[in-house]
């Protein structure tokens, strides 16, 4: 393979990846702001997508950041940004007490099951009928991977049901405080810091 051919392949691959990977938006900006302020120690970003948030935390705080995503195209984009990337289902391949900071901007849009798109972008956006289909298993397992004294930074949209998410947080044994909050025409986005109660 010549250098030209490999560069062409790379460009084509990046074009494909962009089409099927969630790109940074308002929610990403808000989570990055909170994570840059609060992150410490060893950091995991679950559902890292393009890796933009993880890369900002790594560069602005000089921390060791791992980015995981179900979508292999996303893992490639995150790696291209210099993030240590892993293809994973939520927290399943991470050890107990492994991380001091865990960040998550979950797929949170409530979706009619008949209108689900069954592709990578749907995985990045849809939180199932309730909007909380990924938030529930995440909260049920995140205490396991969190080191003593660790913090979880979770982005919550008003579309997902703020009070319902707070109830799940309490059930999982965490206290919460608001780190940043911003209102948009159709939703309010909040980043919560969760610490063991």
């Amino acid at each position: 393979m010549t250098d030209d051919a490999s560069e062409g392949d790379l460009a084509a691959r990046r074009g494909l990846d962009d089409a099927v990977v969630y790109q940074p938006a308002e929610d990403s900006g808000l989570l990055a702001e909170a994570a840059v302020a609060e992150a410490r120690g060893r950091v995991l970003e679950v559902g890292t997508g393009s890796g933009w948030v993880a890369a900002r935390v790594a560069s602005e705080r000089d921390l060791d950041v791992v980015g995981s995503d179900l979508n292999p195209h996303a893992a490639r984009q995150a790696r291209d940004r210099g993030v240590g990337a892993v293809v994973a289902d939520l927290l399943s391949p991470f050890r107990a007490d492994a991380f001091d900071t865990v960040c998550f901007n979950p797929p949170y849009l409530p979706t009619d099951p008949e209108n689900e798109w069954s592709d990578w972008m749907e995985h990045a956006l849809s939180g199932g009928e309730s909007g909380r289909e990924l938030i529930e298993p995440f909260l049920a397992d995140v205490g396991r991977v969190l080191a003593p004294g660790g913090v979880v930074l979770l982005l919550v949209s008003s579309l997902t049901g703020y009070e319902e998410v707070l109830a799940l947080i309490e059930d999982a044994g965490f206290d919460h405080e608001v780190v940043v909050e911003e209102s948009f025409p159709f939703e309010t986005l909040t980043v919560l810091a969760l610490r063991r109660a």
Binding site: L70, P72, R76, R79, A85, D89, S92, P93
Partner: peptide, 16 residues
């Protein structure tokens, strides 16, 4: 592969 470990359980790996 390409520096990225695929740690999906085998059934999800095939689906993905």
């Amino acid at each position: 592969e390409d520096g990225i470990p695929n740690l999906l359980p085998p059934d999800m790996r095939e689906e993905a």
